[in-house]
Amino acid sequence: MTKHVISIVVDNNANVMARVSSLFARRRFNMTSVTAAQTSDPSVSIITIVTEGDAHILDQIVKQTLKLEEVKSVTLLPPNESLLSETLMLRIAFDAATISPIKDIVEVYRARIIDLTSSSMVIQLTGKPSKIEGFLEVMSPYQILEMCRSGIIGMSRGSQSDWWKSSRA
């Protein structure tokens, strides 16, 4: 199964998120992560969904989503050709022996320590998905107390104008 990132431009109405997730649920489309927020145009929101599926399922996801009345466009963001970003927060336990190697990793990844107690810290990292995965892997030997991820957001590269008006079928 291939992972796909889909950017959905929608009317910024109450319920629009429910409509999209209801569609994914009833058609049994996978939803690995989802983010949603208003854009610079207050009447428009963008929902970014990470999903899994073969070419046929992806085709159905795009077409079925586009049928929703409040969806203006559905754009695929191929990972290699797009700007993708995610934020991670990680609460890590440390002691005298582990604090130094943890701080080294934080520095290498240009992450930030945003909360600190005598025995634990919260590390925040923003970056492309592969960076987040890599960071989680090197942190895996340490004691992770809590973790949360924002889900992926993304944009196409280049200078697109009228980005949603052009792609509405």
Partner: peptide, 14 residues
């Protein structure tokens, strides 16, 4: 009812 009928309507409004 808007939630209940979401999957069985083309669209609904409150």
């Amino acid at each position: 009812i808007a939630g209940i009928t979401m999957p069985i309507t083309k669209h609904n409004f409150v």
